[in-house]
């Protein structure tokens, strides 16, 4: 661990990754419970397309992907909340199209090695500028989440009740979607487009195996996510695996562990 901190790029990856893990875990609880997990997945694919186009045109990747992914978040939210269109199918269409556009653009410009790093992540991807921008974004996500925590709970638990009693559910849904977009864009470089959504989904599901209140699930998700990120980084550093893959594997291990613990506590309660 200490040895890792000698390398600047690893320190950057660690700081950004930890912040992103926290943000993703916090938002993930709400997204998973609202059955919106696929939004995170869709957004990451759109982000991949945006990244590819940005690097082909020699533009700063984050500045291009932020607006594109935010617009996509808006569209995905509209699709998901509109019962008439088949939401999951529409998301699948959008994400595979974005993925195809990205892959096509990359193959024409920089070649297939970049596809690998975009898809599965790289700890070398974070520059100093990215670091600053990522820290700012993560802080925004965390502060807004804490301020809106109670409303996010209410809207997640029961949207129609919230609306009826004057909570502006549409506004908070949009806030959640935009914050997710921010998180996905920031985290995609390290985790890779294919794996960033697991950072959103895994910690929430893991915590729900064991914990039974919204607050404890939220807190546990944040902790689990951070711990898994550090474990993932250790694996990456020592075994030279792609960063995204190691973090997801750490999350998978934690999920299995919590599932077992959940089963045991259930037995004990009975």
């Amino acid at each position: 661990m200490l040895e890792m901190l000698q390398y600047d790029f690893l320190v950057r990856a660690l700081v950004v990754g930890l912040l992103v893990s926290l943000c993703a875990a916090l938002l993930g609880v709400s997204l998973v419970l609202k059955r919106y997990s696929m939004i995170g997945d869709g957004l990451s694919h759109v982000g991949f397309g945006a990244l590819a186009i940005a690097s082909a045109m020699n533009l700063a990747p984050l500045y291009v992907s932020f607006p594109v992914v935010m617009i996509a978040a808006f569209i995905l939210l509209k699709i998901s909340s509109n019962g008439k269109i088949k939401g999951d199918a529409a998301i699948a269409l959008l994400s595979s199209s974005a993925l195809a556009i990205g892959a096509a653009v990359i193959s024409q410009t920089s070649g297939t090695t970049d596809i690998n790093s975009y898809m599965f992540g790289s700890i070398m991807a974070i520059s100093n500028d990215d670091l600053i921008l990522s820290v700012i974004c993560s802080v925004i996500v965390i502060v807004l989440f804490v301020l809106f925590y109670n409303k996010i709970f209410a809207v997640t638990f029961d949207e129609s009740f919230s609306k009826a009693t004057g909570v502006r559910a549409g506004l908070y849904n949009t806030v959640i979607a935009l914050l997710t977009a921010l998180t996905v864009v920031v985290g995609m470089r390290i985790m890779g487009a294919l794996l960033i959504s697991s950072l959103i989904i895994f910690p929430a599901l893991t915590s729900m195996r064991v914990f039974r209140s919204f607050k404890s699930v939220t807190v546990c998700s944040a902790v689990v996510s951070a711990v898994c990120y550090i474990i993932g980084m250790e694996i990456t550093y020592n075994l030279d695996l792609p960063a995204g893959a190691s973090v997801v594997l750490a999350n998978l291990g934690m999920f299995l562990l919590f599932s077992a613990a959940g089963l045991i506590t259930k037995r004990v309660r009975k």
Binding site: L33, F153, S162, G166
Partner: peptide
């Protein structure tokens, strides 16, 4: 979605106060 929602009774009841 509420059937397996992790929330305590108190968390749910409190959320009724939010509208105001």
């Amino acid at each position: 979605a509420q059937k397996d929602f992790p929330a305590t009774v108190r968390e749910v009841v409190l959320s009724g106060c939010l509208g105001r």
